[in-house]
Design a protein around this nucleic acid. Structure first.
Lengths: 227, 227
DNA sequence: AATTTATGTTTCAAGTGTGAAACAAAAGGA
DNA sequence: TCCTTTTGTTTCACACTTGAAACATAAATT
């Protein structure tokens, strides 16, 4: 078992392994080998063993892994056995959609509050979640023991909002604003930039090497200036 | 100007550059140097120049970049000057939320149709977008000239849905199902796995090295089995 | 007891992305 | 005309991730 610092790519794969195991468990399987797992879900068996080895020895030589056992370990490693309270800043379309996004509940997160600056929205409810004045952010965070913040405001406000979040002592932030925010100190920020993803698809559809689509225009690559 | 294949990380940065330029343009700036851009938005000037150089010579030595000019070039490179039609498969919470997500409209995408298998939902409308029977997928795609698909169904159906999508000739797919789908042939898939992002935050909050939080339990790392 | 199976672990090569450094070339200003 | 600025371009070193290979070790089976 190693003690080096663990890459985020590794923990991301742990999430995937856990889902695969849930799948197998639902099908009634009791054990699985790294090879079996790899073949079934298009993974790499050596990598599975390596990833798991960062955290302990969970397998049994000659047998493989006891699925229920490994699920419990991964659940604990990923912290999915502990509840967290989420505050969503920005009660616009995205924010309100996220407020009753079932993915939060599926994981160990529950949405405790929405925040907005718009006086018309404050006091209203989205599902069971109340919209609070952003001015009362720090108090409300304390009151509801919010430890995860979701940024769902326009890009121009994101940096300010992040500052408020970090000032309130929250250490985990998910940012949906289309601007990459950098973590300061021991705060973890996950940027989920849908705009970049969309524009990445747009680029793919438009790029000259995309011969099969009818989108291709000759000389689209020659965007060179001659002045 | 190079002709090598271009990394997705590069085009992702182009998206970011474009937003920064839009920012500057809104502030009335006319030109900007790679250094100025880098300092203002915490980027790397050498990388900016390198990224842009893949696509042409857009700058003016001794001056920098003419902002409007570069915006036009980036818009064209990213294909943001061409409209695309989006079909969303899965009219659940996420699917319907995405149906009127303003981010689509902000980019060059417009949502043309939702699809679902639930007979109760078919025929209803979400905003201006109608929900169609998934059985009529191929026809509807043709009818509305849909060229981008969004998968917003539970994980267990995602692979089947992807097959239908590729069979219909669509080349660009955004997958929100919590299972990484692999692209076949010349189909581009962007996986947006919110579950992984959430569990990544969960891991961060739970991990033993996170000394400041009160979540820490001694020996949490020693999940080693002795049997 | 011997064999088989599959983990745990190390090592290595290959590929990729990043960022610094250096420099020629072009444009504008003094 | 000379100098300054800044791009365009190459080169290099560094870091990181992946995936293959090899092998000792442990458990189960025959």
């Amino acid at each position: 078992m190693k003690v080096e610092k663990i890459s985020e790519l590794t923990t991301n794969r742990l999430s995937i392994y856990l889902r695969c195991l849930n799948d197998l468990a639902a099908q009634g399987a009791k054990t699985v080998s790294s090879d079996g797992l790899a073949k079934k879900f298009h993974l790499n068996s050596a990598q599975i063993r390596k990833d798991l080895a960062y955290f302990g020895e969970f397998g049994v030589r000659g047998v493989g892994y006891y699925i229920d056992d490994l699920r419990k370990h991964l659940t604990k490693i990923l912290g999915l056995d502990k509840k967290h309270c989420v505050g969503i800043i920005g009660a616009g379309r995205l924010g309100t959609a996220l407020a009753d996004y079932y993915g939060f509940a599926q994981s160990n997160f529950s949405v405790a509050a929405l925040f907005d600056a718009d006086q018309d929205k404050i006091g209203q409810k989205v599902g069971t979640v109340e919209i609070f004045d952003i001015k009362s952010f720090a108090e409300t965070v304390k009151k509801y023991k919010i430890d995860v913040a979701v940024i769902a405001v326009p890009a121009e406000f994101a940096q300010d909002v992040l500052e408020q979040i970090t000032n309130s002592g929250i250490k985990a932030v998910m940012n949906f604003a289309p601007i990459p925010l950098r973590a300061k100190g021991d705060v973890k920020i996950k940027n989920v930039d849908l705009t970049i993803s969309l524009e990445s698809l747009s680029y793919f559809l438009a790029k000259p090497s995309n011969k099969n689509g009818k989108i291709l225009k000759p000389n689209a690559a020659k965007s060179r200036i001659k002045q």
